[in-house]
């Protein structure tokens, strides 16, 4: 007996944001892989209107637009993993997809949904941050379709909370095409190889030239209310040669800059230890394979 009064299924982005503005209280349905279990468990309450956005063509597709790759909000994890542009330029997303839930969920779950769900343990969020992604947000402004973009770290506010405005829809994720020599790694640390929620996750990316690491980006998942940047770790690595001393210093910096909590999945102490050990492992892997 949910208090769902209204169901809409707009067929264009403009229609969707118009309806959002008009209806106010709306629950968005994309892949449903987070929404439905959360609703069934009583953690999410449906608002008056359920909006199915799956019929909006502008939210689909993966394409290159200038120096960016635009991934429509409705692109499923499976589509992303199989797409030639992603495979060529953003292999990090492919390897992250490999650790994403199960095949069934990857076939239904969307990138936009994963981003808007804003779980601190969301599997695509850390890699997207490492890739410098931004979100494209659509709304109605002065009777016209208006789009703004926002850097990902700015977008996240807390678990399940984002800066998405009430009448706004996440239309796409935009990722700059990485420069020559860009290498990146994502490590999801859970306690089992499939269908796991990560206890921590780490993403590292940067340009490696002659053994020197620059333009470094580090992000951590499941150690704070949102995915977070590893600024101190970036600093420990920026412009340095990836030798044992640098790696050791970066791993310590990583451990010291995170402040995780204890929950059913892991204690804060263990999470910090794993941030240290896995940062070290990732960096060693980068230094030995490139």
């Amino acid at each position: 007996m949910t208090a769902l009064d209204n169901y809409v299924a707009p067929t264009s982005l403009e229609e969707a944001v118009e309806q959002l503005l008009e209806l106010g209280e709306v629950t968005i349905l994309a892949g449903g892989t987070d929404l439905m279990p959360q609703a069934n468990a009583g953690r999410v309450k449906f608002k008056r209107t359920l909006m199915n956005i799956r019929r909006i063509p502008e939210l689909r597709g993966i394409a290159r637009e200038g120096d960016e790759i635009r991934i429509g909000a409705l692109a499923t994890i499976s589509e992303i993993m199989a797409h030639p542009l992603v495979r060529e330029h953003l292999p990090l997303l492919v390897s992250a997809g490999d650790h994403f839930a199960s095949n069934q969920i990857r076939n239904a779950g969307t990138l936009g949904g994963n981003v808007c769900n804003a779980s601190p343990a969301g599997d695509t969020l850390v890699p997207l941050m490492v890739l410098g992604a931004s979100v494209e947000l659509a709304s109605m402004l002065d009777d016209k379709l208006y789009r703004r973009t926002m850097q990902l770290p700015e977008f996240f506010v807390g678990p399940g909370k984002t800066r998405l405005a009430t009448a706004e829809l996440l239309a796409a994720v935009r990722i700059p095409v990485p420069p020559q020599g860009f290498v990146a790694r994502f490590h999801k640390f859970g306690t089992r190889p499939a269908l796991d929620i990560s206890a921590i996750s780490i993403g590292v990316g940067g340009v490696l030239k002659n053994g020197v690491f620059s333009d470094v980006r580090v992000a951590f998942g499941a150690v704070a209310p949102t995915p977070v940047c590893g600024c101190a770790t970036e600093e420990a690595l920026e412009g340095k040669k990836l030798d044992a001393a640098t790696i050791a210093a970066a791993a310590v910096a990583a451990r010291d800059e995170v402040h995780p909590i204890s929950d059913v999945r892991a204690s804060d102490w263990y999470r910090k230890e794993m941030i240290h050990n896995m940062t070290k492992r990732i960096l060693e892997d980068v230094s030995t394979t490139h």
Binding site: T191, R192, P193, A194, L195, D196, V264
Partner: peptide, 23 residues
């Protein structure tokens, strides 16, 4: 089954971890 002060903290397959096929 994590029981803390009489309360079961993981009443679901998400955090009650059965062995999965790859394991």
């Amino acid at each position: 089954l994590m029981v803390e002060n009489g309360v079961v903290r993981n009443p679901g397959f998400r955090d009650y971890k059965l062995i999965t096929a790859p394991e």
